[in-house]
Each structure stands twice: as structure tokens, then as C-alpha cells.
Amino acid sequence: MAQDVKPRIKLPKSAAAGETISIKTLVNHTMESGQRKDADGNTIPRSIINRFTAEFNGQTVVDVTMEPAISTNPYFEFEAIVPEAGEFKFTWYDDDGSIYEDVKSIALA
């Protein structure tokens, strides 16, 4: 999409081995539903992020299928187990083929 998509992620910098942590993610995206019409009565085509995944060292935490009913600027909160030090990878998949990624390292406390 044309606008600059910048994910925001909130998670602790460190955790004990095996600890469950809370993660929040927010990404700016209009999530055009495909239900709206412009002033001339033409349907504005759907343009959404349709999938979000969170992985830790290559293993899945959550994999979310997203529909047009997810609000503008999609927000998720979920929990992950941190078995070891490593890297979280977050990926958003856009209808237009764009992929937005962010990574966050976490150390063992």
C-alpha cells in the first residue's frame, strides 16, 4: 500500500527460561473493508492485511487469519513462552502482496 507501514511491538527485553510473556502489536493500516462506497457510489476495493504471524526462533507462537472486520490499525495482544534467548519475528501479509516484518531480541534474565 502507498502509506508507510510501521509496526509497533511491545514485549519485555528479557525473561526467565520457560517464562510466559505478554506481547502487544499494532500496525498502521487502513484495512479497507471492500464494503465502503466512494462519493460516486463505486465500491472501494478491499485492501487489508490478511494474515499475521509471530514466531520465536522459527517456531510458531500465533498465526492469525484476518478478515475485513479487523479494525483500522490492527492490534493484537497474546502470550508466548520463551524457552531460551533468541529472536521474535513478526510478519504482516498485505492483500497487495507486501510483507511487513519486524524482529525483537529477548535475553534470558
Binding site: 510466559t20 505478554s22 517456531q59 510458531t60 507462537v61 472486520a69 479487523i70 490492527p74 497474546f78
Partner: peptide, 29 residues
Amino acid sequence: AMGNPTPGVAQFNFGPLAGSQFASTRIRL
């Protein structure tokens, strides 16, 4: 969302490292 024009909202699939089977989001009704 049972009354939306298209009812689908989301499907959360939890992987081996999910800390719980919990999720929070914001939706359109």
C-alpha cells in the same frame, strides 16, 4: 460477527510456543 455483511473476523491458530490460548484484538461491528 454474526450480523456483519461478511461474518468472518479472525482465526487464531496457536503454535507450540503460545504462552496461552488467549488473544485480544479490536473489531468492526
